[in-house]
Amino acid sequence: MSAGALMGRVRMMLARAVIAGVNDLAGVQAVQLDVLDEETLDDVERFGTYGLASHPHPGAEAILACIGGLRSHGIVIGVEDRRYRLKVEAGEVALYDDLGQKVHLTRDGIVIESTKPVTVKAPHAIVDADRVDLAGEGGKAVARVGDAVANGKIVEGSAKVFAA
């Protein structure tokens, strides 16, 4: 291989691309990419991070790695979508989507936000906290089974669970 051909392959090893479509039906997600002006690549494998799954929208940006500098053997090694990117402080981590939903590990604690219902599916769930406020802070103590009730009013409620 000539030095010029070798340099061409080196230059083709990494490229920026725009996702044009996603096929999430196979064992590995495949994407269609617009790479250079009038260069489209079909069925390019997208490698993700174990334990995290995402389905990017068309228009998201990708980093394409071409093994041996061959466009016929490309893999997507990273995807970003600046339209929806959540900005976090140094050291923070977040899981987020295009609807504004997020699980944010902040410097002050974990914040879960959603505009949709949040469902917990488990055979048993435990909340271990010094205080639980249902529907916001400032509510009255919630009665538990066995708490004192007199004349239809709760005389003694929980010291940990409150509801607005």
Score class of each variant (00 low, 15 high):
Ile63Asn: 05
Pro58Leu: 00
Val28Phe: 11
Glu92Thr: 01
Lys87His: 11
Asp42His: 13
Val120Arg: 00
Asp98Leu: 04
Val44Asn: 03
Val44His: 02
Gly152Ser: 09
Ala62Glu: 03
Lys153Ile: 12
Met1Leu: 08
Met13Leu: 11
Met1Gly: 14
Asp97Leu: 00
Gly100Ser: 00
Leu25His: 15
Arg71Phe: 04
Ile110Glu: 10
Leu99Ala: 05
Ser2Met: 05
Leu64Asp: 02
Gly136Trp: 03
Thr40Tyr: 14
His124Ile: 03
Ser72Met: 11
Gly100Ala: 01
Val145Arg: 15
Glu38Gln: 09
Glu137His: 08
Glu137Arg: 08
Leu14Thr: 09
Ala150Ser: 12
Val44Leu: 06
Asn151Gly: 12
Ala90Pro: 15
Leu14Asn: 06
Pro56Phe: 01
Asn151Arg: 12
Lys153Arg: 15
Val88Asp: 02
Gly138Ala: 07
Val132Cys: 14
Arg82Asp: 15
Val88Met: 03
Val161Phe: 10
Arg85Pro: 06
Val28Lys: 09
His124Trp: 08
Asp34Glu: 12
Tyr96Arg: 02
Val149Pro: 14
Leu6Glu: 12
Asp130Thr: 13
Ser2Thr: 06
Gln32Arg: 09
Ile77His: 03
Arg85Cys: 07
Ala5Asp: 15
Gly91Thr: 01
Val44Asp: 01
Ala122Met: 07
Tyr84Pro: 02
Ile67Gly: 09
Arg144Ile: 10
Pro117His: 15
Leu36Lys: 13
Gly48Trp: 03
Ala65Gly: 05
Ala143Leu: 12
Leu95Phe: 08
Ile112Phe: 02
Arg9Pro: 03
Pro58Trp: 03
Arg83Phe: 01
Leu86Lys: 02
Thr49Pro: 08
Glu80Gln: 07
Met7Lys: 14
Leu64Ser: 03
Ile110Pro: 10
Leu95Gln: 09
Ile112Tyr: 02
Gln32Ile: 04
Gly139Trp: 07
Ala129Thr: 12
Gly51Cys: 05
Ala159His: 14
Met1Glu: 14
Lys116Tyr: 04
Ala17Leu: 02
Met7Thr: 08
Ile112Trp: 04
Leu105Lys: 00
Leu95Trp: 06
Leu95Met: 12
Gly136Leu: 04
Ala20Pro: 13
Tyr84Asp: 04
His55Val: 06
Ser72Arg: 08
Val31Ile: 10
Ala94Gln: 02
His124Glu: 10
Gly59Lys: 04
Gly68Leu: 05
Leu25Ser: 15
Val35Ser: 08
Ala90Ile: 06
Tyr96Leu: 06
Val44Arg: 00
Ala164Glu: 14
Ile67Phe: 14
Gly69Asp: 02
Ala122Leu: 12
His57Asn: 12
Gln32Phe: 10
Gly74Leu: 03
